[in-house]
Write a protein that binds this DNA or RNA. Structure first.
Lengths: 336, 336
DNA sequence: CTGAAAGCGCTAACAC
DNA sequence: GTGTTAGCGCTTTCAG
C-alpha cells in the first residue's frame, strides 16, 4: 500500500507538501502541486482514512440511526441522506437499532458511535428514556427526521395536522362514524408520532360534533400485515359498522384495503380508507392519503448537519416539512 | 476524551496491559484484568476506533454497495446484513452507487473503499466493465447478493428456474399466449438477472410448443410505476390479447395488477398476472409469485464474509438460495 | 504476567 | 512556498 512518504519521495518534496497539495490547501506552488498530483495518481496513492481520522479527529462519516431499513419511510430517508452525502466526501454509517418492541435487540448508547462519526441523523423511532438521555448528552450535531424526540431538533411533517386532514376529509364527505387504525401501543410513551396522529383524529372528530367510538379503534404496528389483521377485526364488528377508516400509515391502509376487497367490500362505496405517507404502492392502488417526502426531509436534515460541521453554528434546527392531502379513489361519500 | 493511558495510569499498569485486558487477550492475570475493566468503565473509556484502525489495519466495518436502498430487495438485504453484524462488533458502511441508468451518478472504484472497509457485499446491480474489473482486482473478501456478476462469488436464487416456474405455472393453467414484462434494456449487458429471467421464460414457452409473441414483450425498470405503464401499453394491444403476463418482479407485477383492475379487467379471469420476489404487498394483494428471501441471502453472504475475515480461507463461495412458487389469487385458467 | 518502546500514516505548527 | 518535527491513540514485538 503506497503511502504519503513514497509519493513525497517520488515527487522530490516533503510529506507535508504532498498533504497540502492533495487536499487542495493553499501554500503550494501550482507547479509542485501538479507534479505531486501526477505522481500520486501514477502511484495509485489513496490516503489512509484511518491515519487521517487519527490525526484530525474528524471521521468524515455521518451516522444514521434507524429502527428499520426495509420499510418505506426509512428506506426513502436513508436514500435521501446518501444523496446528500454523495460527492461531498462523506461516508454513511448505518446503525440499525432494532424495532420498537421490547426487549430491543440493540440499544443506543453513546459509546456505540463514539469517535466513529461526526454527526448523527436519527430516524424517527421509539426510544427508551436512557437512550434519549444519552442522545441529548452527545457531543455532536444531531437531527431527527420524522417524529419529535424531546429536546432534539427535528425535521418532519406536522403529524397532528396530517391526521386532522385525513379525518376532516372524511367528515367533509359525510362520514359520521369513523374507525381508526393507529400504530400506538402502551409501550410507546416516548414515541410521539402515533400519539400525535391520534390526537389530530380525536380533535377533528370532536370538533365536528361527532362521537368517538372506542370499539372502532384498532392497533397496528405500521406493517401491511397489521393492516390486514386490523381489517379482519373490523369486519367482526356488529353492523352498522363505521363507514370509513383512517390509518396512521399507507402500509397499514393498503393492508386494510386489500383485505377489505378480498372480503368482498366495495371501497369506497362500502368503506372509505385513507392513509398517511405517500407510498408508491398507494398511488398505484388509488389510495387517498396525506403525502409526505421523507427523502427530502432526510436530505434537508443532512444539509443542516453538514453545514454545522462546516462551522456554521446553529445550522441545525427544527423545520416543518411539506405535506399534502391527495384524494384518490379509496374515499368517497358513505352509502346513503 | 479519556484515552488508554489515563486508564493505565489510574489502574497502575501499562497501556499494553490495558490493551490486552480490554480486548480479552490472554497473558493478563484475572485480578489485574478485573481492576482494569473496572477503572475503564468508571472513567467511561471507549477505545478510539481511528487509532485501532491505524494500528491494526482492520476497520471492522463491512461495506455494502447498493444501487438503491428504497426498494424491496435492497432494503431487505441491507437489513439482513445488519442483523448479522449485530453484536459482532462490526459496522456497516453504505455505499449507494446510483441506479443503473447512464450516466451513473457514482461509479464504483477501488479507491472509494480503500482502507475504509474489510470486506464488501455487493447488492445485485448493473455494473460497467471497468467497475467489474476494479471489483475483481480488489484485495478483500467479496460476495455479491442477488445476481451473478462475472467472476465473483454470489448467493441468490436461480433466476432461470424462477422465471421458468412462473411461466410453466401459467402454461399448466392452460394459457397459450403469454405476455412478458421484464426489466432488461439495451444497456444491461452486464446485469444478467433480467436476461436470465427472460431466457427462462423463452425456454419454457418454446418447450411447451408455443410461440413467442414479440409484441407482447414489455420493458420496465422494476418499479411499480413501470408496471402501471406497461399495463397501459398492454391494453392498447389489439384483441385477442395474451391471457396472462409474467413480470420480472413483484413491484412491477403489482403496478400492472392495480392498473389492470382500474381499467376494469378481472384478474385472474380476464388476465392472470404473476411476479417474482415475495413482496409483502404482493402477499396482501394476493399476487402469485416466486418467493425468495433476500434478507436470508444477505445474512448468509455476511456470514461468509465474517468467516473469511476470521481466517477461514474459502469461506466465501457461491450458493443457490431458496425459492418457491406461491400460487395465490392472480392466476387462474384463461377464460374459455 | 507485565512494561518499554517503536511504529501505524497522516496532519499541523512552526521554522526556514 | 516548503521542510521538520511532533504528535493523534492504540497495538505489538521483545525484554524482563
Amino acid at each position: 500500500m503506497v503511502g504519503i512518504d513514497e509519493v513525497a519521495a517520488a515527487a522530490g518534496v516533503s510529506t507535508a507538501t504532498v498533504s497540502r497539495a492533495i487536499r487542495g490547501l493553499p501554500r503550494v506552488s501550482p507547479t509542485t502541486r501538479a507534479k505531486i498530483l501526477a505522481t500520486a495518481k501514477e502511484l495509485g496513492y489513496v490516503p489512509s482514512s484511518a491515519a487521517t481520522r487519527l490525526a484530525t479527529g474528524k471521521t468524515h462519516t455521518i451516522g444514521v440511526l434507524a429502527p428499520y431499513v426495509d420499510r418505506w419511510f426509512f428506506g426513502k430517508a436513508i436514500a435521501g441522506v446518501d444523496d446528500e452525502l454523495h460527492g461531498k466526501g462523506y461516508n454513511l454509517s448505518l446503525f440499525h437499532l432494532g424495532g420498537r418492541t421490547e426487549p430491543r435487540e440493540r440499544l443506543f448508547s453513546r459509546s456505540m458511535v463514539h469517535k466513529q462519526i461526526d454527526a448523527i441523523l436519527l430516524l424517527c423511532m421509539y426510544l427508551h428514556p436512557e437512550e434519549i438521555e444519552d442522545l441529548q448528552a452527545i457531543e455532536m450535531p444531531l437531527i431527527v427526521i420524522g417524529g419529535p424526540v424531546p429536546g432534539c431538533p427535528n425535521v418532519g411533517i406536522d403529524d397532528y395536522r396530517a391526521a386532522r386532514a385525513t379525518t376532516e376529509h372524511l367528515i367533509g364527505l359525510g362520514h359520521r362514524h369513523i374507525a381508526l387504525l393507529h400504530g400506538q401501543d402502551d409501550s410507546d410513551l416516548n414515541f410521539s408520532v402515533p400519539k400525535i396522529r391520534v390526537e389530530g383524529f380525536h380533535d377533528a372528530v370532536h370538533e365536528a360534533g361527532l362521537e368517538l367510538d372506542p370499539d372502532a379503534a384498532f392497533y397496528g404496528n405500521f406493517t401491511v400485515q397489521s393492516g390486514i389483521e386490523a381489517m379482519a377485526r373490523f369486519l367482526e364488528m356488529p353492523e352498522p359498522r363505521p363507514t370509513a377508516m383512517v390509518c396512521a400509515s399507507d402500509e397499514m391502509a393498503l393492508g386494510a384495503l386489500f383485505e377489505a376487497r378480498r372480503r368482498g367490500l366495495n371501497v369506497p362505496k362500502d368503506l372509505s380508507i385513507v392513509g398517511i405517507d405517500g407510498h408508491e404502492m398507494g398511488a398505484a392502488a388509488g389510495l387517498t392519503t396525506v403525502w409526505q417526502d421523507p427523502m427530502a426531509q432526510a436530505r434537508r436534515g443532512t444539509q443542516m448537519l453538514l453545514a454545522e460541521l462546516a462551522g456554521e453554528a446553529g445550522a441545525v434546527h427544527s423545520e416543518i416539512a411539506e405535506q399534502r392531502l391527495v384524494v384518490r379513489e379509496t374515499t368517497g361519500p358513505p352509502r346513503a
